[in-house]
């Protein structure tokens, strides 16, 4: 447990202090939201109906940002070899890394999203669904993303490959997340979508931590 906490704290500190880590994802998220009206036009009705998809696409893309630094530096500087030898099972190493990534990336987006959603004319009463859907869904994004990062670690120009691997696998989160916000905007019950979103995150937690741990175990020459 102490090893787990130490690793978690180390990863959080690293991502906060190295080159604006956490704020990069948050800034990127806000930027996409701000770009949307410039591309789509300032029509409130149009922006409102596009908002659920835009918010979730922005979340999907912003989650990608920190991923390159979740596994790759540890592979390059040999930390991964030490982690492989340590008593802490690699599944828990993955869990610590996912948690660190989510706290510095997903959670920030969850907090920011309700603040910037009114720019897209999302109703005040729908804001809790925006926050809830991101809170339930972004952990799943971090899990799948970390598995993708583990599989593509050590690849030259791995960032593009990472996006290619992770984005299709994250489609269910996009569908259910945007679906929940859509539902509440149309006056229906968002709970079905939110439950499915939670289910996605839970499945992602199981599958991705096993897959990422297997990848870390085997990702050596």
């Amino acid at each position: 447990m102490r090893a787990f906490t130490a690793l978690l704290l180390r990863d959080i500190v690293l991502s906060l202090r190295s080159g604006g880590g956490a704020w990069l994802g948050a800034g990127f998220f806000v930027l996409i939201i701000a770009l949307a009206p410039l591309g789509l036009g300032p029509e409130p009705a149009l922006l409102k109906s596009a908002a659920p998809g835009l918010i979730w696409i922005a979340a999907l893309l912003a989650t990608l940002l920190g991923l390159e630094r979740v596994i790759e530096p540890d592979l390059q500087d040999g930390t991964l070899d030490l982690l492989r030898m340590s008593a802490l099972p690699l599944e828990f190493v993955v869990l610590a890394k996912v948690l660190a990534h989510w706290l510095t990336n997903g959670l920030v987006i969850c907090v920011l999203a309700p603040l910037v959603s009114p720019m897209l004319f999302v109703d005040a009463k729908a804001l809790w669904v925006v926050a809830a859907s991101l809170l339930l869904g972004t952990p799943g994004l971090s899990f799948i993303g970390t598995a993708g990062a583990a599989v593509s670690a050590g690849v030259r120009r791995g960032g593009v490959l990472l996006a290619l691997i992770v984005l299709p696998l994250n489609i269910p989160a996009l569908i259910f997340g945007a679906g929940a916000i859509n539902a509440v905007q149309h006056g229906s019950d968002p709970r079905q979508a939110l439950l499915l979103l939670a289910a996605f995150s839970l499945i992602a937690a199981v599958v991705a931590s096993l897959a990422a741990a297997a990848a870390l175990r085997l990702n050596e020459d």
Binding site: A147, V151, S152, G154, V155, R156, R157, G158, L161, A211, A214, A215, L218, N219, E220, D221
Partner: peptide
């Protein structure tokens, strides 16, 4: 993307 075939094989199967 992965040059070394055995490593590529392991990652691809995951």
């Amino acid at each position: 993307a992965i040059d070394e075939p055995t490593r590529a094989a392991r990652m691809a199967r995951i």
